[in-house]
Design a protein around this nucleic acid. Sequence first.
RNA 1: UGGGGCGUCGUCAAGCGGUAAGACACGGGUCUUUGGAACCCGCAUUCGCAGGUUCGAAUCCUGCCGCCCCAGCCA
Length: 582
Amino acid sequence: MKNTEKAPPVSNFIRNIIIEDIKANKNDGRVITRFPPEPNGYLHIGHAKSIVLNFGLAKEFGGRCHLRFDDTNPTKEEVEYIEAIKEDVKWLGYDWGEHLYFASDYFEKLYEYAEELIRRGKAFVCDLSPEEIREYRGTLTEPGRESPYRNRSVEENLDLFRRMRAGEFPDGSRTLRAKIDMSSGNLNMRDPVIYRIMHVPHHRTGDKWCIYPMYDYTHCLSDSIEGITHSICTLEFEDHRPLYDWVLDQLPVPCHPQQIEFARLNLTYTIMSKRKLMKLVETGVVSGWDDPRMPTISGMRRRGYPPAAIRQFCEKIGVAKRDSVVDIGLLEFCVRDELNRTADRVMGVINPVKLIIENYPEGESEELEAVNNPEDPSAGTRMVPFSRELYIEREDFMEDPPKKFFRLAPGREVRLRYAYFVTCTGFKKDEDGNIVEIRATYDPATKGGDSPDGRKVKGTIHWVSAPHAIKARVRLFDRLFSVPAPERVKEGGDFTDFLNPDSLTVLDGCMLEPGLKDAAPGYVCQFERRGYFVVDEKDSVPGSPVFNRIVSLRDSWARIEKQRQQEEARKNKQKSGRKRKR
RNA sequence: UGGGGCGUCGUCAAGCGGUAAGACACGGGUCUUUGGAACCCGCAUUCGCAGGUUCGAAUCCUGCCGCCCCAGCCA
């Protein structure tokens, strides 16, 4: 058994920078990072990449990672999100210890810094309207024009700024702007707004403030106040780095952290934009932020993805600056890899059909021993009941099978896992031609699944004793989108055009091993030969669990079948082609 | 002649002047009481393109080409 989490860290450019910094004794060798979410939505797998990176780096180099909420815009933020985000980070396996912070904790300090900026002639109060500011900013190719209010005296600026704070002016009437360079090719440097008036209560500071600092001004100073050494963010902030550095260069700050940008995570068949995820929730396409099909941390938790698998995935994808799209198959691989080692095995029939053992005495039953996890002997064994009437998987029987089909068919012998060899003697159909019952005889000498005469059998199928089985609801999930890049929509189109209509299948007649009756919410197991399942946290009731499929098992039979069908289709095409030519 | 980034296998990704790691996917095989897992083998003579420097270039230089981001009082 391998422990994949002990794999050596993958080299990446940020880690290399930190290694060099430590070598040069920069920051006295300290490594302090931070994960700075805005509490305006739920965390998703893209955030997990950042969390694993920031907390992982801190841990590897003996430093620490702060959790800081970037809560400078009260119109968009809610406390609900704060608690959800904390829970998600904890669940992923990370601990910020004492270091839980809020940008809003620094509002007073930030305000003082702003006055200092004014005193140093580096900021001014501007009376331009939002529209005018946009006009004055210029365009991507043309320089902007200086605001007519740019050269107010320090005294006037100070007075106006204090009155802004005091609430004397309405929303949008004035701003505090940094005085940098209206002709800069970098729009962020064209006298950016650093404070705006918003007569809106804040979820933490209440009515104390009616002016709120902007991200660019707040983030660098918050980093500095906390003594952050490496401020890691995503690529779209690359253009903001000059402003990050500018602010810190103007002020008597404790330290000057280094901002480093990396490419955000994109996943095939998935959307990652908070706005779009929010739309799915609000329009009821999914049942909520924690719908098991969502790429949110809470969705994956409910889906049954182990946090270790998500961590493993985030380590494996690497960190670079190139825009990329990771195959969602890699995430699924990580989930299977983790679950294979840790999940109990159990038998559950998703799509049941009756199997009658003709020579097994009616009304009798026995208990057979089954292994709980072949990958982990310490998981032990359990007893499962066996009787004359069983359920097996409908797809494990074929009336007229192709050569490579190793399962049950008329005259064929297979092994019932942990039970007996059985040979199919017949089957019954209803008027519509559906198979309603399969009949077989068993060989009592093969109890446990081994034949004393050394006779081999090609297939082993799972089963459940009909009179003992519990009936349960099982939900199968598929990818939410039917195309690899749902966010790459054509003009006029919408990402919802690509929703997969079959992303959720609810099955109510599934038959499971009786031991599963009282499985606790959150319990994860493998239904042998079918996949990994988790007892849903929300919809299960005691004694009646609802199972979510976490991920299917790799299915090489499905691959063989697909190849065979494609081959067939190809041949048919050739045939009809020849016919047409004649 | 706006600014900032990025181009290494189908998908991620190491590589930092000494002759292309690894993972997923894919293909083949061994084994198997899960068509699972495990194990073995294969999978870029070439790094967007073209020149140049060098004994030697994915790595340095020059020029092209392609893709991404920026005109919120959002973060």
